[in-house]
Amino acid sequence: MSFLRLKKIVLLLIMFETFCVAAQTSGKESVLEFQRNINKEFKDPAESPLTIEERKVFKSLTFLKIDTTYVVEAEFVRTPFESPFEMPTTKERTPIYVKYGELYFKLKGKNLKLNVYQSQDLLRKPEYADYLFLPFTDLTNGDITYGGGRYIDLLLPLSKKVTLDFNKAYNPYCAYSKKYACPIPPVENDLDIAIPVGVSYNTEDSLH
């Protein structure tokens, strides 16, 4: 192999490594922005599920360590002929949802699927017209994450590929206050795998 060819290969490897590092940094910054925003929400009296006393001492939610291996590219399949249904919640309220589509992806060597839903109530509000709801459970629930499962917010996909970042998984408001009626993740969104990223939960230190 000539010296010039070897030099080109080395340069390509360096460029590829630089690209990977930049992509990881960009991904982590996106998660950090999510964490800043949700902490800001919990401090805001108009949005927070916390009581006045809790907001006074609140500093941050507990976040698990960011891990970009839990950012996956999923194949989105639209399911346009689904019927509206009442999604059970932690109380008597049963909001109307429609299954909007399915996400197929591979994580830690497993082929997985999650359904995404569209709230028919929020659909009436222009600011939420492109909002999709992804509730799920996994093997960390009741241990390092909230026992009732967690949520991820998504926007209407513009293509058949959707980036799914589990580092942005958060707890429902009923994890912090019993006055809320939170949707219970449907059984078909129960993942047989641990997702040890996102917002954590512990009754002793979930608010610190």
Rank of each mutant, 00 (worst) to 15 (best):
P185C: 06
L112E: 06
P80Y: 01
I96L: 09
F16M: 14
V31L: 08
D67F: 06
L11R: 15
L64K: 10
K65R: 01
N111M: 10
L156P: 02
L156D: 03
A22G: 07
F3P: 05
A194Y: 04
V57K: 11
S30F: 04
A194K: 14
G148T: 08
C174S: 06
T94Y: 00
S30R: 15
A46E: 08
E47H: 08
K7P: 05
P196K: 13
L191M: 07
M87F: 01
F58V: 11
P186G: 01
G142S: 03
T90P: 08
N141T: 14
F166G: 08
K28N: 10
G109L: 05
G147C: 06
L64W: 06
G109E: 03
F136H: 00
S177T: 13
E82H: 00
D67M: 07
P126N: 07
N39F: 04
F19Q: 03
G27D: 02
I96K: 11
L154F: 10
I193V: 14
V199D: 00
S200L: 11
L50W: 10
T68D: 08
K168R: 14
E29V: 11
F16G: 12
Y151K: 13
Y170V: 05
E102T: 09
V57C: 03
T137G: 06
F42N: 01
L139H: 05
I96S: 08
L112D: 04
G148D: 00
L207D: 01
I38Q: 00
P183A: 09
E102W: 02
E102I: 12
T140K: 11
R93H: 05
R78S: 12
E204T: 12
F133S: 01
P126S: 08
L4K: 10
P135H: 04
T203S: 14
V71K: 10
G148V: 07
L207A: 04
G149T: 15
V72T: 05
D67W: 06
P183I: 12
P126H: 06
G109Y: 05
P84M: 02
Y151D: 09
T18N: 05
S60M: 06
A22H: 06
K178Q: 03
M87S: 00
V31W: 09
V197P: 08
G147N: 03
F16E: 08
Y117R: 04
A194N: 07
E53M: 14
N115T: 15
A23M: 14
K110T: 06
L132I: 02
V197W: 09
Y180Q: 03
A194W: 08
G109F: 03
P157I: 11
S159F: 03
N202M: 04
Y104L: 15
L61Y: 00
C20G: 07
Y104Q: 12
K125Y: 14
A22I: 10
K113A: 15
F85N: 05
P172G: 02
V187M: 07
N115A: 15
R78K: 14
L123A: 15
P49T: 10
N189L: 00
R36C: 05
Y97F: 13
G147R: 01
